[in-house]
């Protein structure tokens, strides 16, 4: 500041180096600054390329697929038989029904258990129990899906087969399950989505202001009445977000389902049947020696596009819910 004044006055001024023009910082630092800005910018926009590439790959190859197979067959026929040759059939419904069956079963198991765990953690657990339970949930969330797939084969499948063996009540009701069944996948995916529901719902429950709980308790409500009538309604959009994300994850889950549910694309609602989901079809088809052309290969991308559409819609929905509860919070 003092130098500014002198430059206005009579003191001699060194005009070679402006004091606070851009050149006042040494050239090396300025160059590095500009360079790094560019580098970081590229890092930032790279995700846009990734997203564009995903959409382009799925769309472009789906268009190729539909030059072999009519959209009417794809969207309205109910037989999926993606083999090389003339007797291939490409009606997506068996894959969609398999996916939805597994997702519904997983939701039936994972959502209530996950929410109950979240309520227990947020509203009841003592710090000691919390300190034990939270890491358990985190570990469960960190286990790779291939490990769950192995677990489904080694542990859950025998249990399901035992429970539906000839002569049992469930066996009489549904029929007898083999090594692979939708029920295996439902149970294991239910376990896999539980931590998602728990962690997001717990966050939402914890963000309900303490003074609302106090108001309810001071009116003579029990803890459970407070949870049910005050806390849960206030956290409802966060809980909804956790549910939607969990279902979206269940739809996108691949390895555990591939290993547990089988490889038969079949239009059924019976949980003891072996089925195939959209994801399992993609994994199974590509792990074989498929030629990289023709409708069989391209069908991967058509199914992938359908899968992408399902999960994309659910994720957008979940983000809506999350935004709403963030707004309530502030």
């Amino acid at each position: 500041m003092t130098r500014t004044k002198t430059s206005e006055g009579t003191a001699p001024v060194d005009r070679g180096v402006p004091l606070f023009g851009r050149k006042s910082i040494d050239v090396g630092a300025r160059g590095a600054d500009a360079l790094m800005r560019g580098v970081f910018f590229l890092g930032g926009v790279f995700v846009l390329f990734v997203a564009a590439a995903i959409v382009w790959v799925l769309l472009d190859n789906s268009v190729g697929f539909f030059s072999f197979v009519s959209p009417v067959e794809f969207f309205f026929h109910d037989v999926w038989h993606a083999v090389e040759g003339a007797n291939a059939q490409y009606g997506i419904w068996p894959l969609v029904s398999g996916t939805l069956l597994v997702a519904a079963g997983a939701a039936l198991i994972g959502l209530p258990l996950g929410l109950a765990t979240a309520i227990y953690l947020a509203e009841y657990a003592s710090p000691r129990i919390r300190g034990f339970l939270k890491p358990v949930i985190e570990v469960l969330a960190g286990i790779p899906s291939i490990v769950f797939g192995f677990f489904a084969l080694a542990v859950i499948s025998p249990l399901v087969q035992g429970a539906t063996a000839p002569g049992t009540f469930l066996g009489g009701l549904f029929g007898n399950a083999g090594v692979f069944s939708a029920a295996n996948a439902m149970i294991v995916v239910g376990i896999m989505v539980l931590p998602i529901v728990t962690s997001i719902s717990e966050d939402a429950l914890r963000s309900v202001p303490q003074h609302l709980r106090e108001a309810s308790l001071a009116l003579g409500a029990t803890r459970w009445e407070t949870v049910r009538n005050v806390v849960l309604p206030s956290a409802v959009s966060g809980v909804a977000a956790s549910f939607v994300l969990a279902v979206s994850r269940a739809i996108g889950e691949t390895m555990a389902v591939t290993m547990a549910a089988g490889t038969q694309a079949k239009l059924t609602a019976n949980p003891v049947d072996a089925i195939q989901t959209m994801t399992a079809f993609i994994a199974q088809k590509t792990s074989g020696d498929t030629p990289h052309q023709g409708p069989g290969f391209l069908s991967l991308f058509a199914v992938g596009a359908a899968l992408f559409a399902f999960t994309f819609i659910m994720n957008v929905l979940a983000q809506r819910f999350v935004r709403r509860y963030r707004e309530v919070e502030t």
Partner: peptide, 30 residues
């Protein structure tokens, strides 16, 4: 049971995120 005989009003107004009617009715319905 005790808290039904002893009401409390807090520092910050803390109505439930419900209707005016339901705020009053909540404690009675319990």
């Amino acid at each position: 049971a005790l808290r039904r005989h002893i009401g409390m009003v807090f520092q910050k107004p803390n109505p439930f995120p419900k209707s005016i009617y339901d705020n009053i009715a909540y404690g009675v319905r319990l």
